[in-house]
Design a protein around this nucleic acid. Structure first.
Length: 187
DNA sequence: TATACGATCACCT
DNA sequence: GGTGATCGTATAC
């Protein structure tokens, strides 16, 4: 079952935690790619010194102020795309950065895209997973549903999940609380 | 209009 | 464990 707006239109921290272990699906040119979400980070609004929304609404970050359930893709370091889903109600800024996934369906497709043979390294970073999933700013602002070809399925791949947390990655001025969440599935 | 820098990765040692 | 690549934004002038 595909996650709907109701899932995303909640507190950003809750959405970030509950996305863990679910299946990120990309449908492109009739090909279905998917992976298990293993790492997320929560970003908030004015009170968050690391958030794009910290100075208010701009041309780049306006989607963070929109209602939950939309795709927010931006360019980082001049060369990599990062995938986020918007969260919370309209005019309440929030987004969840998808940092890492484990390839699940169509692993060979991803290996080719990434020019990478090691299963573990295919999408263990926000820039990498965008390459593996063919995600770029063309889909910025679309809704995360079957029409846009990028969405999350509520599939319990891992029944029992221990959620670990830490400080967010690559942040100089972070908040006191931990807003990076991740799981370490047993194989 | 100009400039500094970032929610990163790949490659080197 | 360290560093260079690379460019859209935000911020300052």
């Amino acid at each position: 079952m595909i996650l709907t707006k109701e899932f995303y239109c909640r507190d950003t921290e809750i959405v970030a935690k509950e996305l863990l272990g679910k299946l990120l699906v990309r449908e492109i040119n009739g090909v279905r790619i998917s992976g298990i979400i293993t790492e997320t980070e929560a970003y908030f609004g004015l009170e968050d010194p690391a958030s794009h929304a910290r100075f208010g609404k701009t041309d780049r970050n306006f989607l963070m102020f929109d209602e939950g359930g939309k795709v927010y893709v931006y360019l980082i370091y001049g060369m990599y795309n990062c995938l986020n889903f918007t969260t919370d109600k309209k005019d309440v800024p929030g987004a969840v950065l998808i940092r890492s996934i484990l390839p699940y369906e169509n692993i060979e497709y991803m290996k080719e895209k990434r020019n990478c043979q090691k299963y573990k390294d295919i999408a263990n970073g926000p820039g990498k997973l965008c390459i593996a999933f063919s995600i770029n700013r063309d889909i910025n602002g679309l809704k995360a549903n079957i029409d846009s070809g990028l969405y999350v399925e509520d599939k319990e791949i891992y029944k029992k999940i221990e959620i670990k947390k830490s400080k967010r990655i690559g942040i100089k001025k972070d908040l006191e609380k931990d807003y990076r969440f991740y799981i370490e599935p047993n194989f």
